[in-house]
Simulated assay, not measured.
Amino acid sequence: MTAGADLASRAARDWNSDLYLKFEEERTRAARDLLARIPYCETRRVYDLGCGPGNSTELLTRSFPGAAVVGIDRSDNMLAVARARVPAAEFVKADVAHWEAPAAADVIFANATLHFLPDHRNLIQRFVAWLRPGGRLAVQMPDNTYEPSHAAMRMVAADGPWANRLVPVAKSLTVIGQPEEYYDLFAPLCRTIDIWKTVYIHPLHGPEDVVEWFEGSGLRPFLDLLSPEETGDFLSRYRERLAQAYPRQPDGKVLLRYPRLFFVLQK
């Protein structure tokens, strides 16, 4: 295998649903909070963008029992878990960045998905266009670019033999804007906008848990470009920085501060 083919193979590695679901309760909490703020109206078709292992899709099928619920994801592993978990829903393999709704939607739900996409502002405008009149777009995006967890990622990426590969990745990661920016952008498109920010505090067992949390999400753009040997070295250095950034509490746990930006738009 050539070096280029090997890199492409590693970059195409699938998501790990087991690792993602280790913190299912913490991850699903934001989806529940987002769902709770969706205004009621008759709902026939719901799309769950970036549905992952189906934890958010399951919530949607329960909240909209009469609707056709469709989960969208590009990971075969995640979709297999989601299909087994939520047999009442339909699941489609697609890249959210290029997905188009085949039929008008009453609800488009995007929980912890759009922050991975650099053009998410234009995508959100497209999603609004696919809503029926009165339809709702519900979005939640982690806003932790400047948290110690993510600052440590960038520092380790820049301080190692992989720097020439990983620094461009660090520079290309999406930065979430201020709430006012999104309000001003979407106000002309919508009847109502509900926008808010929540900072969750997650007690975890130690720096190792913080590493595993982000192995299933934020670290993926970095780790996908590393060999198995480099991955071990990268994670070891990352763990050392986290141990400094997240001191243990008297009970031995560490507190992961996790800001998230939410908004619900009604067309």
Rank of each mutant, 00 (worst) to 15 (best):
T28S: 14
T28H: 11
A30D: 06
R32M: 11
R32I: 09
L35K: 00
Y40D: 15
C41G: 15
E42L: 15
T43M: 14
R44A: 13
R44L: 10
R45I: 12
V46G: 03
V46R: 05
D48F: 00
G50V: 03
C51E: 02
N55E: 11
N55V: 10
N55S: 15
L59S: 07
L59P: 04
S63T: 06
P65I: 04
P65T: 02
A67Q: 09
A67S: 08
G71N: 01
D73E: 06
S75M: 04
D76S: 01
D76L: 02
N77P: 10
N77Q: 10
M78A: 07
L79M: 06
A82F: 06
A82T: 01
R83C: 13
A84K: 08
R85I: 04
E90G: 08
D95I: 09
V96I: 10
V96Q: 06
A97F: 08
A97G: 11
H98C: 13
A101S: 15
A103G: 14
A104Y: 10
A104P: 08
A105E: 04
A105K: 04
A105D: 06
A105I: 05
D106P: 07
V107L: 08
V107R: 04
I108Q: 02
F109Q: 07
F109H: 06
A110N: 09
A112P: 07
L114F: 09
H115S: 00
F116G: 08
F116M: 14
L117Y: 04
P118N: 07
P118F: 05
P118K: 06
H120N: 08
H120W: 05
R121S: 12
L123K: 08
L123E: 02
R126Y: 11
F127Y: 10
V128Y: 05
W130N: 13
L131H: 00
L131D: 00
L131M: 04
R132N: 15
P133E: 06
G134Q: 03
G135I: 03
L137Y: 00
A138Q: 00
A138C: 01
V139S: 00
M141T: 03
T145N: 14
T145V: 13
P148G: 04
S149F: 11
A152Q: 01
M153K: 08
M153C: 09
M153F: 10
R154Q: 08
R154T: 08
M155H: 11
M155T: 15
V156C: 04
V156I: 13
A158E: 07
W162M: 11
A163T: 15
N164Y: 14
R165K: 15
L166E: 05
V167N: 11
P168F: 12
P168I: 14
P168R: 13
